[in-house]
């Protein structure tokens, strides 16, 4: 039997009359890299937002590592081990790169208010260790320098890398990447694909990504799920998906087939 890190059953989200997620069943195998693809407005980001607790599903269940996360607040879900990046970069622009990563470690630090006011030795040790770890993560994610610069002033590619470093700082089991290569050139994209594979292997992560660029999808993912109008229309290996008629129809329109 396969080991599922994520098990979504009959997930449904309605915004007024609009059904954004229409009774989706979906699983992610532990240790795999899975792509979620589909045309604009297919409900991919809405799906992410339900996984992370930003939206409450109308009905359905999401089991993460055996725990039901529907109804849990976002920070608690993050603590369980889901880290994410955003479609439009959402760094804390007025903090330094290092601080951004430190914020990501927030839930892993234990010093409460009193501890941080009285600077107990334990809190100090913990802070020093956190800084050290944050720097390592930055280097690991391809940001060897400029740690003290404001995140908002970093070049675009570095901001993308910083977002991944920040997500990794939450110590996730599942990494959600929302269009991570948007705006990257082919060279950067290739580097990024290699990086995602390396992170998965070295940190024993599971990766779920939303992607538009079919080259990325083919290059990085072991399985894909295709959404259209909130419904799952296909699932399988990239090669199978690529030749699926409904998928081609959804992307290119009717008549493109045959």
């Amino acid at each position: 039997m396969t080991d599922h890190l994520v098990e979504v059953t009959q997930l449904r989200k309605e915004f007024g009359g609009l059904v954004a997620t229409n009774d989706i069943d979906f699983t992610v195998e532990r240790g795999s890299i899975v792509s979620l693809i589909g045309p604009n407005g297919a409900g991919k980001t809405t799906f992410f937002n339900q996984l992370t607790g930003v939206y409450q599903p109308t009905s359905g269940s999401i089991l993460f590592d055996g725990v039901e996360v529907v109804g849990m607040p976002p920070h608690a879900i993050t603590a369980l081990g889901i880290g994410r990046t955003f479609q439009n970069i959402r760094l804390f622009a007025q903090m330094t790169a290092l601080e951004n990563v430190l914020v990501g470690m927030h839930s892993c630090l234990h010093g409460g208010i009193l501890g941080s006011i009285f600077r107990t030795p334990k809190v100090r040790r913990e802070e020093a260790a956190a800084r050290e770890k944050a720097r390592e993560l930055l280097v690991y994610s391809g940001l060897p320098k400029r740690h003290e610069e404001q995140a908002g002033s970093l070049p675009y590619g570095d901001q993308r890398r910083l977002e991944v470093a920040r997500a990794l700082a939450t110590d996730p089991k599942l990494l959600l990447l929302d269009e991570p290569t948007a705006g990257m050139n082919p060279q950067e994209t290739a580097t990024f694909i290699a990086f995602v594979r390396r992170v998965r292997d070295e940190k024993q992560l599971t990766v779920l990504l939303i992607e538009h660029d079919m080259k990325v999808v083919m290059g990085v993912s072991e399985r894909c799920t295709v959404l259209e109008y909130g419904e799952k229309i296909a699932e399988g290996t990239p090669a199978v998906i690529q030749s699926n008629e409904r998928v081609i129809e959804a992307y290119l329109g009717k008549g493109a087939v045959g």
Binding site: T52, G53, V54, P73, P74, H75, T78, A79, G83, R84, F86, R90, L91, F92, A93, Q94, M95, V103, G104, H106, S107, C108, R166, A167, A169, T170
Partner: peptide, 14 residues
């Protein structure tokens, strides 16, 4: 700076 991203970083917003 960003309430939603903070929640994603494991910060208890409330």
């Amino acid at each position: 700076q960003d309430t939603e991203a903070s929640a994603m970083m494991g910060i208890d917003v409330d």
